[in-house]
Protein backbone atom coordinates (compact mmCIF):
# COMPACT_ATOMS: atom_id res chain seq x y z
CA UNK A 1 0.00 0.00 0.00
CA UNK A 2 1.32 3.34 -1.03
CA UNK A 3 2.04 5.59 1.96
CA UNK A 4 1.08 9.21 1.84
CA UNK A 5 3.60 11.95 2.43
CA UNK A 6 4.03 12.44 6.15
CA UNK A 7 4.41 16.15 5.64
CA UNK A 8 0.73 16.53 4.82
CA UNK A 9 -1.54 18.27 7.29
CA UNK A 10 -3.75 15.52 8.71
CA UNK A 11 -7.02 16.41 10.35
CA UNK A 12 -7.86 13.78 12.93
CA UNK A 13 -11.44 14.13 14.07
CA UNK A 14 -12.69 13.07 17.47
CA UNK A 15 -12.75 9.30 17.80
CA UNK A 16 -10.25 8.68 15.03
CA UNK A 17 -7.04 9.03 17.00
CA UNK A 18 -4.48 6.43 15.98
CA UNK A 19 -6.13 5.65 12.63
CA UNK A 20 -3.82 5.44 9.65
CA UNK A 21 -3.97 7.99 6.79
CA UNK A 22 -6.26 7.19 3.90
CA UNK A 23 -4.40 5.68 0.97
CA UNK A 24 -5.14 3.72 -2.19
CA UNK A 25 -4.63 0.01 -2.83
CA UNK A 26 -2.74 -1.14 -5.98
CA UNK A 27 -5.90 -1.92 -7.98
CA UNK A 28 -7.29 1.50 -7.10
CA UNK A 29 -4.05 3.18 -8.16
CA UNK A 30 -4.27 1.28 -11.43
CA UNK A 31 -7.80 2.54 -12.09
CA UNK A 32 -7.25 6.07 -10.77
CA UNK A 33 -6.09 7.62 -14.09
CA UNK A 34 -9.25 6.26 -15.77
CA UNK A 35 -11.72 7.12 -13.00
CA UNK A 36 -13.56 9.85 -14.88
CA UNK A 37 -13.70 7.67 -18.01
CA UNK A 38 -15.15 4.81 -15.97
CA UNK A 39 -17.78 7.13 -14.50
CA UNK A 40 -18.68 8.32 -18.02
CA UNK A 41 -18.79 4.71 -19.23
CA UNK A 42 -21.26 3.72 -16.51
CA UNK A 43 -23.50 6.68 -17.46
CA UNK A 44 -23.41 5.56 -21.10
CA UNK A 45 -24.30 1.98 -20.13
CA UNK A 46 -27.08 3.28 -17.86
CA UNK A 47 -28.61 5.39 -20.61
CA UNK A 48 -28.14 2.54 -23.10
CA UNK A 49 -30.15 0.24 -20.82
CA UNK A 50 -32.99 2.79 -20.63
CA UNK A 51 -32.99 3.22 -24.39
CA UNK A 52 -32.97 -0.53 -25.02
CA UNK A 53 -35.80 -1.21 -22.57
CA UNK A 54 -37.84 1.74 -23.80
CA UNK A 55 -37.63 0.62 -27.42
CA UNK A 56 -38.12 -3.11 -26.77
CA UNK A 57 -40.94 -2.97 -24.23
CA UNK A 58 -42.74 0.28 -25.02
CA UNK A 59 -42.07 1.62 -28.51
CA UNK A 60 -42.09 -1.66 -30.48
CA UNK A 61 -45.28 -3.08 -28.85
CA UNK A 62 -47.06 0.24 -29.45
CA UNK A 63 -45.93 0.27 -33.08
CA UNK A 64 -47.04 -3.38 -33.56
CA UNK A 65 -50.49 -2.63 -32.12
Amino acid sequence: MEELETSLNFIVLQGLNGNEPVSLYPLQNLLLPFASELVALWWVVWMGVILFLFIKFIVLPLVRD
Partner: peptide, 30 residues
Amino acid sequence: TIKFHEGWVLGTYFSALKTGLPIFPDGTIP
Protein backbone atom coordinates in the same frame (compact mmCIF):
# COMPACT_ATOMS: atom_id res chain seq x y z
CA THR B 1 -26.51 6.53 -10.47
CA ILE B 2 -25.23 7.65 -7.08
CA LYS B 3 -22.42 5.12 -7.48
CA PHE B 4 -21.13 6.66 -10.73
CA HIS B 5 -18.41 8.40 -8.78
CA GLU B 6 -14.85 7.74 -7.63
CA GLY B 7 -16.20 6.57 -4.29
CA TRP B 8 -17.64 3.47 -5.98
CA VAL B 9 -15.78 3.19 -9.29
CA LEU B 10 -12.50 3.07 -7.36
CA GLY B 11 -14.15 1.93 -4.15
CA THR B 12 -12.62 4.72 -2.07
CA TYR B 13 -15.77 4.77 0.08
CA PHE B 14 -14.61 1.50 1.61
CA SER B 15 -10.84 1.93 1.48
CA ALA B 16 -11.33 5.12 3.54
CA LEU B 17 -12.96 3.05 6.29
CA LYS B 18 -10.80 1.72 9.08
CA THR B 19 -12.64 -1.60 8.84
CA GLY B 20 -12.53 -1.74 5.01
CA LEU B 21 -14.94 -3.99 3.18
CA PRO B 22 -16.61 -6.78 5.20
CA ILE B 23 -15.37 -10.33 4.52
CA PHE B 24 -13.45 -9.61 1.25
CA PRO B 25 -9.80 -8.47 1.11
CA ASP B 26 -9.41 -4.69 0.80
CA GLY B 27 -7.23 -5.06 -2.28
CA THR B 28 -10.24 -6.40 -4.20
CA ILE B 29 -12.55 -3.48 -3.33
CA PRO B 30 -12.89 -2.01 -6.88
